[in-house]
Simulated assay, not measured.
Amino acid sequence: MEKYSQFRDKGTAIAPFLPVPPAPVSIVWTPIYTFLFLCRIPFVASLSILYFGIIEWLPVGGTIKYAVLWALLGVTGVWWVDFQVDGVKRGQISAAKEHLPKAGTIIASSFTSPLDPLYLAGIFQPIFTRSYPNSRRVERITLLHAILLAFAPPAIVPQDESKLVTLASLVESNPNSIICVFPECTTTNGRGILPLSPSLLSAKGDTKIYPVNLRYTPQDVTTPVSGGYVSWLYQLLSKPSHQMRVRIAMRVYNSSSIDSPAKRSEKAIGTGYDSNIFDAPDLRNGANGSLERETGMDVTTGETEGEVSTQEQKVLDRVAEDLARLGRVKRVGLDIGDKIDFLKVWLKRRR
């Protein structure tokens, strides 16, 4: 793949946009894989029509939605999930409610596969959003749109800016829901974390942001290249099973007065990792006001004077570092613009 060397990160030599080739299959296993695909595809189609065409639009209880989504995940072969939360020992997830996203909080998730939003919906039932690289506001989308977004070409600007809202207003208008953000703005192959959108900066300073990383084994179910619906479905449904690994980091705040990266690092050095838990943030110190004074940004509207400030960049860096640490990968300098250029070269040479 030396012909795509210009799309490797100069510091790490990671190529986050190259698709992961499937493992070679022997002639003996080919009929079995084809049989699995043909057996599963009717169930996947039926459950998808049931959920996205009927249940999602009806005022049914969350239990029914969870059941159908987990049945859909089970049919696709995602049977085994390794779930871990920072600061919580294995086997004690049930006692880790304080460390998990809940209503009124934000999930900042990695984005590598259509399975990402499907799994997050099956666990948290969040409101999904789409981020753009140069905007502090986000676009609210449905679960189906989030899934299809994994196959869509990247976009630098929205088609309709009137649909954009700040995370602060979205949280305020939906106090009983979790908000999910994909701050990388586009999918990768899971081998690097792209620079994050400033959309996370439109959240209020006291809103908890949970970095979440999802990884798959084998990795050929990632969709760094747009299109390829049929081939992706075959790779997903023809394999007996897929392993999913989910990691959730400790909460981050969009405020230097509550939980800045500098403060967290100092505490980590002095008293250990568990000391980074802020059960009762001191809002009297001006969680929102400090950000406004430092950046000139109104956290309610998301309007800002100038570019991302140093303090704001620390917040984005902290989330990106957590995503990279959870995924055991590195941050890269390539962004959504580089992916657009990559796709032009990739599709041209494929033709």
Rank of each mutant, 00 (worst) to 15 (best):
G272F: 06
T186H: 01
S131I: 05
A45D: 08
I277P: 03
A67R: 14
G87T: 01
D298I: 01
F278M: 11
Y4T: 06
G77M: 00
P198W: 00
H99Q: 15
V165K: 04
Y253L: 01
K267F: 07
D160Y: 09
V25S: 10
R136F: 00
T129P: 01
S226E: 10
V246G: 06
E305C: 11
E56R: 15
E305G: 11
T295G: 08
I93P: 01
Q243R: 14
D274E: 13
G306Y: 01
T187D: 04
I340V: 13
G74R: 07
G302P: 00
I178Q: 03
L143C: 07
S131A: 15
N189G: 06
L148Y: 10
V85S: 04
P101A: 07
D116S: 05
S169E: 13
F37E: 10
T304E: 11
L343Q: 14
P218H: 02
K97N: 12
L50V: 09
V212M: 09
Y33W: 09
F111P: 00
S255R: 02
G289K: 15
W346K: 08
K97G: 14
P175N: 02
V88N: 01
L58D: 08
Y273N: 13
T34G: 15
V308N: 04
F7Y: 14
R350E: 11
P42N: 05
I32M: 10
